[in-house]
């Protein structure tokens, strides 16, 4: 991993649930399974369905990004009262131009990725659109870390 540790909850914040999910690069056969597992967990925890949809869409896009571009990653799920946070840190090539990567339609996808229905340059903007909190940091040759969260009335 790139040494970028997930943030510790602030004092007074109680983490109701947390779990880490490994994702392997190029593992197209399982692309979507982490998002599906997290969705089941969020349902069981009684998170509002609108929030689950936003998070699941982001998790699926983020998972596919790892499969398409990175070597491996860990998706860390943290459920707090009124907020679900995701920290996805990958080991991979990193992103040279973050502004460009955030532009809708910009993509470095290969034909195989497009055959899977991805790689249209919508992933990162889509995650941002579905999140109340979003940040991305990347170091070329090391990896990329995404942090996003969806908030709701507890």
């Amino acid at each position: 991993m790139n040494g970028d540790a997930p943030p510790l909850p602030a004092p007074g914040e109680e983490v109701l649930y947390s779990e880490s999910f490994p994702i392997r690069g190029n593992d197209f056969e399982h692309g979507g399974s982490v998002a599906a597992r997290v969705k089941v967990i969020l349902k069981q925890l009684g998170i509002p369905s609108d929030s689950i949809r936003h998070l699941s869409i982001s998790n699926f896009e983020a998972e596919m990004n790892v499969i398409m571009y990175a070597d491996e990653a860990t998706l860390e799920l943290q459920v707090l009262s009124g907020e679900v946070r995701v920290i996805l840190a990958d080991r991979g090539p990193g992103i040279v131009d973050l502004d460009l990567a955030m532009q809708e339609g910009y993509s470095t996808a290969t034909p195989e990725m497009r055959q899977r229905g991805f790689g249209a340059g919508l992933g990162l903007p889509n995650i941002k659109r579905n999140s109340d909190v979003f940040s991305i940091t990347s170091t070329v040759g090391v990896g990329t870390t995404l942090r996003y969260a969806v908030q709701f009335e507890a």
Partner: peptide, 28 residues
């Protein structure tokens, strides 16, 4: 990605993509 970005819940997805990702998309 278009479906994930622009569709609303409860819709019927019409697609020529018969991959695992189509089923995951319908789920998430």
């Amino acid at each position: 990605s278009d479906v994930l970005a622009f569709s609303r819940a409860g819709a019927l997805l019409i697609t020529g993509l018969a991959s695992l990702q189509a089923a995951h998309t319908a789920d998430v």
